[in-house]
Design a protein around this nucleic acid. Structure first.
Lengths: 336, 336
DNA sequence: AGGAAAAATGTAAACGTTTACATTTAAACT
DNA sequence: AGTTTAAATGTAAACGTTTACATTTTTCCT
């Protein structure tokens, strides 16, 4: 038999209001009665129905997480950190990866309009036009993670793609004296990709190296396009002496292809990546890359989102860029 | 202004019951009115409140996923497949990784007792005493993923650890003629680990190789214990000619250590793993391992769970063991 | 046309809480 | 003791749906 608050009230000889108050730790209820009620609650093994509670309180204590269609350990860490942070506060996490671009908007709207969650963490490096409008119209607080640009008024948290790319390219230039630095770019329209590319260009400029269009190829952030990009670059008349891949997956593709073609890293060509995915430390030679504080990203996203949910009116906006840090391996030519 | 079913009803000139029925596609409502209502709904951008709906229908259309404290891409694929399968049916996914063993029970109970979800997928390779009791007492359907043993009456789905381990060890024996096959075991009490170990022993026995306790060391399914295990094994008077690591992470540890110690794989010692994690295909030499159909595991778990939720009474139990398959790399001594 | 049967709609009671407001009980004054 | 005030409890109305049951409207007979 399902037990509800009425049963508890009956057995405790009080009204349901008192039971409710006791369980919500209101100081309106006398310690004695509180104890008495608690005893009955334990006895009956009563758990208040969160759905009813949500309906009544108009809040679910749940945050929604919308992820892009990509998969990878990267996201697992992200989710894990979100979950952990939420758990500390007794909140719940509803996840939904969007299974396509079209779907992202739908997913988002459904989630925000519905009252199923009190706030949303939206990871969308490839933001679409409609999205910003949806967000700014909605009552539901949202925090944008790794989105390009500065959407006035919305909470955002992202990583410093520009600086990471700049630093690693400058490392290639200053420490190793490479002059012909190729780049395998990320997908068009992807914000992380664009910022990393900008960092690359800026480092070249600052160090008075002319940008050579033939040294820049497009990729899609996956292994395959890394292979293709690498092949393209190495088949040109002017071969690069170093290649910066916009993420580790593509760097991985470069490794694979290099192995096939008998090209030695870093002797024939140096390689650098971005993300510092778990795998990269196990490559031979260890990949030089840029570390991304993914764990921080998740836990801060939760903190800021909850803050936004609680503040409600006092709209104090959060905008933060988390620092990235280069990780020196041997793929750039450094020893050990 | 928040719009609810009453507003829609008012504007459409019908009662809320009719609106509700129209939206639930009941055939009790005349096509004309259905259309009229739909128009108003679109106009007002009305989204029925799922919380209220859940309360009324006593069902949330949400499944809970409880994961162990581990992280890794392995789980990301699992979650992704669950999410995808759920999404197809317009269901939602609430995840919570338990952050400790103690916590697993709490998490589970909270989730099951609360009505926040209609069913739970519990991934628990290291099942505790209390859990089975909780599950069998509860009304909420549960499907156990990768749990040891056969808990009578509960839905279970798992992978064929035994066969996978047996096959790969037999490969080492029959194809490569190794006689001294060491094993780096998984954590004590972990079901996957135990079954893999059993597969190892069985393969030895079947092929008339005596079990040598000095060739068996314990590990914890992580890289570090893989390193330690490998070192231990290779420092004995009788060195193994092949090592079966109970998962790829530990195999990875073995690779790392081998590199440090200048031991050549597979020439000095062959290595085999289990799981076929993404990373393993990029190791040099490519790791010989056992592929686990993680994607299937997730989507079938959802299917069976939903079936259980819908059937409700007609308790027809699901118990399935998904086949595993060995993946031949070069780490066992095979060419290419 | 008149009545029965079928189809469509409406009314109101769930679902299980929280909480504003009303009421009772206890404490603290004179 | 009799007021006034504060503390504790109770009553009932939300929260936004669904759905059993009651009622109205339409369709189909003869």
């Amino acid at each position: 038999m399902k037990i509800d608050i009425h049963k508890v009230a009956l057995k405790a000889g009080v009204s349901i209001a008192t039971v409710s108050r006791a369980l919500n730790n209101s100081d309106l209820v006398k310690p004695d009665t509180k104890a008495k009620i608690q005893k009955i609650v334990d006895e009956l093994n009563y758990i208040p129905n969160p759905i009813a509670r949500s309906l009544s309180k108009q809040s679910t204590e749940t945050i929604g997480v919308v992820l892009p269609d990509l998969v990878g350990e990267f996201f697992m860490d992200f989710i894990h950190s979100i979950d952990e942070e939420a758990y500390k506060r007794n909140w719940h996490v509803l996840i939904s990866s969007s299974h396509s671009q079209r779907n992202l908007i739908e997913t988002l709207m459904e989630l925000m309009g519905s009252g199923r969650v009190d706030g949303v963490i939206l990871m969308a490096p490839q933001i679409q036009d409609g999205i910003f409008e949806i967000i700014s119209k909605s009552k539901t607080p949202v925090i944008l993670v790794n989105t390009c640009g500065d959407f006035n008024g919305t909470n955002q948290i992202k990583i410093d793609n520009f600086k990471g790319a700049y630093d690693i390219v400058e490392h290639l230039i200053k420490v190793h004296n490479y002059k012909k630095i190729g780049m395998i770019n990320g997908p068009k329209g992807n914000c992380d990709a664009e910022e990393r590319f900008a960092g690359y260009l800026s480092a070249l400029k600052k160090n008075k190296i002319n940008r050579d269009p033939s040294l820049i190829v497009n990729g899609g952030f996956d292994v395959d396009t890394g292979c293709i990009g690498f092949t393209t670059l190495m088949n040109q008349k002017i071969k690069p002496d170093a290649i910066f891949a916009a993420n580790d997956m593509m760097a991985l593709g470069a490794y694979e292809t290099a192995k096939e073609l008998g090209i030695k890293i870093p002797d024939d060509v140096a390689i650098a990546g971005f993300d510092d995915i778990y795998l990269s430390q196990f490559l031979t030679p260890r990949l030089t890359t840029v570390h991304v504080p993914i764990y921080d990203l998740g836990s801060k996203a939760v903190k800021y989102l909850l803050a936004a949910i609680n503040r409600d009116k006092k709209r104090q906006r959060h905008f933060e860029v988390l620092p990235t840090e280069i990780v020196i391996g041997s793929s750039c030519g450094c020893k050990h």
